[in-house]
Design a protein around this nucleic acid. Sequence first.
DNA 1: CTGAAAGCGCTTACAG
DNA 2: CTGAAAGCGCTTACAG
Lengths: 331, 331
Amino acid sequence: MPRVTSKDVAREAGVSQTTVSFVLNGKDEHGLSAETRRRVLETAKRLGYVPSGAGRALRKGRSKVVLCVVPDFPVAEAMEQFKLALGRSLGEAGYTCVYLHHAGTTTPLAELWQHVQPAVVVAFGSLSPDDTQSLHRAEIPLIDGVFTPDGTHLTGLSQEDIGRLQIEHLAARGHRHIGYAALDDPRERPFCRPRLRGATRACSDLGLPAPQVVSMRYSRDSARNAVAEWTQGATPVTAVAAFNDLAALAVLASCRIQHIVVPDDLALIGVDDLPMSSLAVPALTTIRMDLTAAADNLASSVLSTVGAQPPTAPSGPDAADILAIVPRETT
Amino acid sequence: MPRVTSKDVAREAGVSQTTVSFVLNGKDEHGLSAETRRRVLETAKRLGYVPSGAGRALRKGRSKVVLCVVPDFPVAEAMEQFKLALGRSLGEAGYTCVYLHHAGTTTPLAELWQHVQPAVVVAFGSLSPDDTQSLHRAEIPLIDGVFTPDGTHLTGLSQEDIGRLQIEHLAARGHRHIGYAALDDPRERPFCRPRLRGATRACSDLGLPAPQVVSMRYSRDSARNAVAEWTQGATPVTAVAAFNDLAALAVLASCRIQHIVVPDDLALIGVDDLPMSSLAVPALTTIRMDLTAAADNLASSVLSTVGAQPPTAPSGPDAADILAIVPRETT
DNA sequence: CTGAAAGCGCTTACAG
DNA sequence: CTGAAAGCGCTTACAG
């Protein structure tokens, strides 16, 4: 059963291929009669016509694919929700949103652009200068650094605000000497650094001493050392903001082993609201992100980049709505 | 800067477009001279020629894209590793591996096939009958149910073996009355059921009573009830195999609240080896999967489906190598 | 207001 | 052993 082409629709509707194309692509300026328009639409639907991506891409030099490049970063479970939401929004606008997982040395990305000819590339994390340049040469628009501080306006999701929110929560509970659990993993750095910066600024704004930063890994030893640093200094810390829930959970486990009572001896707040966090004993206070809202914001940015939508003012939910404290037992 | 086409290569190398195509696609049967071949290859490289995906797709009706459809299932962190490995293997064979996150009611998948014209569709989880049929009509090969029991030969990853391994480990530690923590989430069912089946069969093979199955959710209450069921019956259970680490961690937290000593009162084994599992107190015994090996196996299946590789006997690492017990403190 | 025709870059059946 | 030509399905400049 051969594929239904626009030629078939044209013949069946008794018009030319040109007219079919105009109708289907909403080229109003040609002033098609309402009747012609209706008939074409009806015929296309009746025949189950689906335009050929290859045909269009070949002709226009650009496909209707939005290529999202995901680097090797430790994705939160929540990221899946983000992908679903982004795919839905873009799908409604006629774009197919597709993910490429790229850890450095696969095929050079450069080849890929030409191979796939995406309408736009969305890079989570940051692309290498080489890749950026090759994209530029291919005249493919790039939306870069979605989750970095520079990308805040794209999603409404501010990494800095996350750190700030943690500090504000702890300060509101009366804490003045606060520790920060940073993560010693290069893949996390793009997230960790801005969060820490936000925390540091919040301390400064609130007149608190800067947070006592300890860099740790996901291991018991590492968490133990971190706790020791926080509790055994001259001015021990009474609360810790952790880069994420996993780090917080490591700290929590370590406290238990060392008989440090949470939250009385040490309060604790994470980020992510992992399923595990509500199960921990005591249950972990954390920050939840509404990634669906963030994805919808990103979809708007993407669509305005490809000209499928007028550039919107950042009207969507702003950071205040995207981030929410989930107060539990560790603070 | 206009794109380099095969015509450019032909002109530059002093041959016809036909010859360029033959050389680049390895059509040996035409008996091209070694010299011509060399010159074309050299020229293509020098000009930085990348074939147009759109051109080829339009001509052949099929692109060099492998489309992986991921349903809305709670992905383990480890899945990322799988994606990276699959992308690398397929990339080496000239295919671009791309992921579509599809939660039911986005654009009907049917449209997508025609839009993107993938060489093959790989479905994690199972596709709806409608989607399967539309794929069939479009004559696009489908590799379905990658992580279901039916897909075991594709990856070498057997869900049943996971359950079996858990039971064997517990039995070797002397446990005879074993509980199974199943998960009350439809999205997990494709994984949970076969794992449970494997566990049940292993018990039967070992002459043990069938596992006492309790279905739970990721919540404290739910875990508490589960533990109560296991410990307060006529013949209490001395060990629990959990569907995954998260369920095991919920049980572990619940044991702690109820002063049930793990592993002395109740032994516990999970699946996944989450980062969190080594941090728990006591640290969780679990099963780790080598998803890189599984991905390489899948890549072979995919390539042989598209005819890019002779069908391989399942030569890769088999289940025994893909699954490994990680013994820790809970057993 | 609508249509005929060209051309995007590729592959391949056919002709030399 | 190699090349000229057709055609995949689309969009759009141009002509009526």
